[in-house]
Nucleic acid binder design. Structure first.
Lengths: 337, 337
DNA sequence: GCAGCTACCGAAAAGGATTTCCACAAACGT
DNA sequence: ACGTTTGTGGAAATCCTTTTCGGTAGCTGC
């Protein structure tokens, strides 16, 4: 027979309410009342229970509590692609809204696979989560999980295709306006827009906002909006073409910081000064790129952490009986460097 | 009286085993046996139960199951800094090892605050997690959570200061060797090393491995090892100084991809061809930096996803009764571009 | 001295799934 | 025909906490 405690590593058994009650010489029910601040307990008895709980470093079993209460204080965090850099700040914001242990989130990454997503949803429901936060990796609408779930769901970053669901997203159109209005207010009039993959809703919406702001100011866009890929290489290539055809350009709004870095590389090689000669504005405020640029890059920040917080708060509102639906857009923010 | 179902959004009640049993006309115990493949159930009865479960889309309540079994199939994922880019791949790897819903992880971010970390640990324990995975944001050893926890703990990326704990980390010394050996094997003999913050264990260990490999090959390091910050700016500045004093250098091993990008900027400005004239090797294999470099950057990959998987597997081993202790180092990998 | 009151404490049930043990029936062997 | 085995199904206990309800002791007022 193997002696389990040979290694001296015997883990302390988790103590239960019954242990506490026994040590304090009361019944479990009285111990429960004492620990939860209920009345019908004498002050002296309460102290004895509290002391016993301290000695045993008792902490109540959330499983038992959740089983009884019908609420667990847990939510599912369902991402389609953890690798994407937009997901993390959103998760941080959500986690922030959860508070210190009052609510905890299960992290699930579906890796873009619908089947896997279904499995995760089932697993989360069987764990009796109080709700779900679905975090997309692109801003394009995604299929709904459906209306027949036993818990509320909030979609964020990527809205649900179903308007009955509640989605909390970034205002990409507004962000496009914001960038252009900033450039105009700093005296630029010959503004170009180089952005990423035209298949992304994000690039389309930002371009739409930018064009609207330009139109309102009575300004044309220099050249056409140049779609390509979300890469430095595209930024380099597109800006080279732009400078060839439109050397008069005095500002370039870029669809991402990566594109902006590429643009700045080309400008440097052609001895066009940034920002004196040509202003550059990026998108994402991805600090590893924007702060290391020469000069540091002004960029649009999507306030992703705030987005996560808002999504979590929306879920709590739904749990408190005030469900909303539709798409709610949060404004972006300009970070000037 | 407010009609709750007015909006037509009445959420389906979660069905219980009792519901299934009632529908199938058996007792809950028989239903349980049928669903769990136990014997003592006639085939025809089992089918009836399965059909009933399907109709009600029954899924067992993990809380109740966990309460009874003493195992919940949940683990705590405790990070000190979610923002850090090393944490995410590790979490992905761990999540991967969990399998489809068999185990789920609670995501907790302590934001580098010990108090907050303590709160999270308490909360996780009260949720009856089966174990903890502690993910550091730097490779430097961190304080242990202690030996008196009721569940096993695995530390990863950052090892625990206590050798009684089990830690799974990257072999940074070996990674330094790996980089140098690659450069030597491609014919380089005048090799320099520019790295980041000397206060980081990571930079010290990589430098140690690099120097050891150089010494074994009977080669000197060109200049001294140059410590600075983990930034492109430092890479640019340090490489400029290096070229001034040691123009004969034919390879530069950089402590991070950011540093390497800075180095490559300087080399480009001075018309030194990469890699024909001077080879550059980065560290982290941070694709946004390494693939967008000109030319694409060869880099060391820490295999972080594998690290996460290994950490999770180590936790499962501990749960299965084979706990280990000490620091286990996983090799890094060279990605040639 | 007795009804009625308050203050305090404990027994019991509830929540959902699993497991052990017992009961019952049918089939078998002698 | 009777004891025995085998095959099925159910009752009850268990995990831990919370809440309801009932009970006891001590006290007041008449």
């Amino acid at each position: 027979m193997v002696e389990q405690s040979m290694d001296g590593q015997a883990r302390p058994r988790r103590s239960t309410l019954t242990d506490v009650a026994k040590l304090a010489g009361v019944s479990p029910s009285t111990a429960s009342k004492a620990l939860n601040g209920r009345s019908h307990v004498r002050a002296e008895t309460r102290d004895r229970v509290l002391e016993a709980a301290r000695q045993l470093s008792f902490s109540p079993n959330s499983l038992a509590r959740g089983l009884l209460a019908g609420r667990t204080g847990t939510v599912g965090l369902l991402t389609s692609d953890l690798e994407g850099r937009f997901v993390i700040p959103i998760l941080m914001g959500a986690e922030d809204a959860f508070g210190e242990g009052a609510v905890n989130g299960f992290l699930c990454d579906a890796r873009g696979d619908t089947i896997r997503e279904q499995h995760h949803v089932q697993a989360l429901l069987s764990r009796q989560v109080d709700g779900l936060i679905v975090v997309g990796s692109r801003t394009d609408p995604r299929p709904s999980l459906g209306q027949d779930l036993p818990v509320p769901v909030v979609y964020t970053y990527a809205p649900s295709e179903d308007p009955q669901d509640l989605s909390v997203v970034c205002d990409n159109v507004g962000a496009g306006r914001l960038a252009i209005e900033h450039l105009i207010s700093s005296g630029r009039t010959r503004i170009a827009h180089i952005t990423g993959d035209p298949g992304y809703g994000a690039s389309q919406e930002r371009a739409r906002g930018a064009l609207a702001a330009l139109a309102e100011a009575g300004l044309p866009v220099v050249g056409e909006v140049r779609f390509g890929t979300w890469s430095e290489g595209w930024g380099r290539a597109a800006s080279a073409m732009l400078l060839d055809r439109h050397p008069e350009v005095d500002a370039i709004f870029c669809g991402s910081d990566q594109v902006a870095r590429g643009v700045m590389d080309t400008l440097r090689e052609r001895d066009r000064a940034v920002p004196d000669d040509i202003a550059v504005i990026g998108f994402d405020n991805w600090t590893v790129l924007s702060t290391n640029a020469r000069p540091p890059l002004t960029s649009i920040d999507m306030n992703l952490q705030e987005l996560g917080r808002t999504a979590a708060q929306a879920l709590f509102d739904a749990l408190d009986g005030s469900p909303r639906s539709g798409v709610e857009a949060l404004p972006c923010r300009l970070v000037i460097r």
